[in-house]
Design a protein around this nucleic acid. Structure first.
Lengths: 154, 154
DNA sequence: CGCTTGCTTGGAGCGCACTCCAAGGTTCTA
DNA sequence: TAGAACCTTGGAGTGCGCTCCAAGCAAGCG
């Protein structure tokens, strides 16, 4: 038995919310500029992601141009989320390698995600701390502003 | 009238929680390595902060060595917090310039902090979004792990 | 056909935030 | 008073994550 995900061959997608602006599977051969429009990444970045192994090798047209699939877009969505967590690109490449390596890396992927989750929680806490400091200073300046204003109106 | 903060001359500190490991005001002349120990920054970074205008000009011993004050440490604490928010160094320098420029920049400082606060809130929300994705994937892998384990024990 | 627009590649360049270096002066401890 | 440990400076170097360039092929259109 192999644990099933979406359609089987070595991705790692456990179906998030369905994405907008996509073509149905079967007609999903997007040019790089379409992917730029859908993801907000630049074409440079998309090619770079492929070069460094963060993307699987993308399918090509008969003339060698990239044709991205819905599956590729799903992967890019995940990469986008991981990037938002602040995960270094090198770690995402590591994760991509694990996905390519097959089912026996599930444990390692799990660990990597769990660690990332912990990091995110810690970061949120850190930000809450800074928020407290900001609020203290902001209310100081608000008071100072009022004091100066009332002085101005005297 | 001048709106009072701690002791008057052009800082911007509205007294957070009192800091540990400090000497009382009056004997507060810390060497750079003491500040390294207190802040976790490197000496390189402290000198660099000064060069780029993120610190006021630090007081010197009669031979030209830096002697930091409690006030300087307070400022470094704030800088540390702002850095945690992800604020670019250039923006912090701008804030430092406003502080040096005097009381008439209160409004601008207020705005800068308010914007930063909004950014932090947005970032926290963003992180919560990634947390949802991570949790979904993590539970997927947990299930997959259990499935493989039960298969292995059969 | 000519023109525009889009795509390809390897490799160089950039902005940020440090990080380190060399060469020399200072301060502390035994 | 010797030696270790620490401090000074301007400038160069580093690692990350892109970002851009040049030169050339390809596709669509009047």
């Amino acid at each position: 038995m192999t644990v099933m995900e979406t359609t089987g061959t070595g991705t790692d997608l456990c179906a998030g919310p369905p994405q907008q602006n996509r073509r149905p599977d079967g007609q999903d051969r997007y040019t790089i500029s379409e992917v730029v429009a859908l993801t907000g990444l630049t074409a440079h970045t998309l090619r770079w992601y492929e070069r460094i192994g963060l993307m699987p090798h993308i399918d090509r047209s008969h003339t060698g141009q990239r044709r991205y699939t819905n599956r590729d877009l799903d992967w890019l969505d995940l990469v986008g989320k991981l990037r938002l967590t602040g995960m270094p690109v090198a770690d995402m490449v590591r994760y991509a390698e694990l996905v390519r390596a097959g089912d026996h890396t599930y444990g390692e992927r799990f660990e990597l995600l769990r660690t990332t989750r912990e990091d995110v929680l810690a970061r949120i806490d850190e930000l809450r701390g800074t928020l407290a400091v900001l609020d203290r200073k902001i209310s100081f300046y608000a008071d100072a502003g009022r004091a100066l204003a009332s002085e101005g109106s005297r």
